[in-house]
C-alpha cells in the first residue's frame, strides 16, 4: 500500500516518465520549429507579394528611381527601387566603413591586450551596447545626431546618409566586436607562442599570424554586421531622412528599403497593388539578408574545419 501511494505521487508530475513518449514526440516536432518558421515566413511573404510578382515590370523595378506607389486617379503608378537600393547599400557601406576598422581594432585590444578587470568591463559594456534597441538608436539619430550634423556641416537636413551611417555603424559594432573576438580567441595559443619564439612583436603577431589564421571568422563577423545593417528598420527610418533619391553627397538624405516598408505599410490599403509591392520589397530584403547570412555561416563552418 505505501508503495502504490508513493508511485502515484511521483507520477503526478507533468514531466513524469509516463509521458516520455509524447514528450519526445513534442521535442522532435519543436526541433523543426526554426525551419518551419523560416518556411512560413517565405510562404506568407510570397503570398503577400502574390499577384504583383507576375504583374510588375521587373526591369523597371530594379533600374528606375521612380517610386510612385499610389498615384492620383488617371496616373500610372511607378515601382522603381533603384534609389532605395542605393540608399540601403550606401548607408550600409558607410556603416561598415565606421564599424569594421573600429570593431576589429577593439576586438584585437580586448582579445590580445586587455587583461583582468578592463577586459571584463569592456565586454560587459559592449554587451549592454548591443542591447540598446533600434528605436532608441533612431531616437539618437533624430534627436542627438541630427542637430549636431546640421551645425557642423551647415546643412538644412540633419537626417541624412551620414547620420544613418553613423547610427547603423554604432549599432553593428558590438556584433562585429564580439564575433571577431571569438574568432581571434579561437586561434590556438601555440600560434602566438611560435610567432613569439621566432621574435615577432605583438604587432606582427596580430597582423601576420592572427589575422590570417582567423580570416574566416573575421569575414563572417563583417558579413553578419552587414546583414544587420541592411535589415535595420527603425533606426534607418528615423536617421536617414527618408528621401527617395540617389545621394550625390554624404549629407544628402536617402531612403532605405526597410524604412519604405515601415513607413508605407500602414497607409497602403489591404490587397492593393501598393500593398503587394511592399511585400515584394520584403522578399528582396529576405533574399539579400538570407544570402549574406548563409554565406557567413558557410565561412564560419570553413574555419571550424581548418583550425
Amino acid at each position: 500500500m505505501p508503495d502504490s501511494t508513493r508511485k502515484t505521487r511521483v507520477n503526478k508530475s507533468l514531466l513524469s516518465d509516463r509521458f516520455e513518449k509524447p514528450i519526445e514526440w513534442l521535442i522532435k516536432i519543436c526541433g523543426w520549429s526554426s525551419l518551419a518558421a523560416l518556411t512560413a515566413i517565405l510562404i506568407f511573404i510570397l503570398k503577400g507579394a502574390g499577384p504583383m510578382i507576375s504583374k510588375i515590370n521587373w526591369v523597371e523595378f530594379f533600374t528606375s528611381t521612380k517610386w510612385v506607389p499610389s498615384p492620383g486617379t488617371g496616373n500610372e503608378p511607378h515601382y522603381g527601387i533603384l534609389a532605395m537600393l542605393v540608399g540601403t547599400l550606401s548607408t550600409t557601406a558607410l556603416a561598415l566603413l565606421i564599424s569594421v576598422p573600429l570593431g576589429l581594432a577593439a576586438a584585437v585590444y580586448i582579445s590580445e591586450f586587455a587583461t583582468g578587470k578592463v577586459k571584463e568591463f569592456l565586454k560587459v559594456l559592449l554587451e549592454l551596447l548591443a542591447a540598446i534597441p533600434s528605436i532608441v538608436w533612431g531616437f539618437i539619430g533624430l534627436m542627438v545626431l541630427a542637430p549636431l550634423i546640421q551645425n557642423w556641416f551647415g546643412v538644412q537636413q540633419g537626417r541624412n546618409l551620414l547620420n544613418g551611417g553613423i547610427v547603423l555603424g554604432l549599432m553593428s559594432v558590438p556584433l562585429i566586436v564580439s564575433l571577431s573576438e571569438d574568432a581571434l580567441r579561437a586561434v590556438p595559443d601555440a600560434y602566438r607562442e611560435a610567432a613569439l619564439a621566432l621574435g615577432a612583436s605583438k604587432w606582427e603577431i596580430v597582423f601576420r599570424v592572427l589575422f590570417p589564421a582567423a580570416r574566416n571568422g573575421l569575414l563572417a563577423a563583417v558579413m553578419l554586421g552587414l546583414g544587420r545593417a541592411i535589415g535595420e528598420t527603425m533606426a534607418a527610418l528615423l536617421a536617414t531622412g527618408h528621401a527617395n533619391q540617389i545621394p550625390s553627397a554624404i549629407t544628402d538624405p536617402v531612403r532605405t528599403i526597410t524604412a519604405t516598408i515601415a513607413a508605407e505599410m500602414g497607409e497602403a490599403p489591404k490587397n492593393s497593388d501598393h500593398y503587394h509591392v511592399l511585400f515584394i520589397l520584403g522578399l528582396v530584403l529576405f533574399v539579400i539578408t538570407g544570402v549574406v547570412n548563409v554565406v557567413a555561416d558557410l565561412v564560419i563552418k570553413g574555419t571550424k574545419k581548418h583550425v
Partner: peptide
C-alpha cells in the same frame, strides 16, 4: 536546422512584421 536557426536570427525585423501581418 542549424542553418535555419541562424538564418531566422538574421531575418530583418520588418520582414517579421510583414510575416506577422500576413
Amino acid at each position: 536546422i542549424g542553418v535555419g536557426v541562424t538564418s531566422l536570427a538574421g531575418v530583418p525585423s520588418i520582414v517579421h512584421a510583414l510575416f506577422g501581418l500576413g
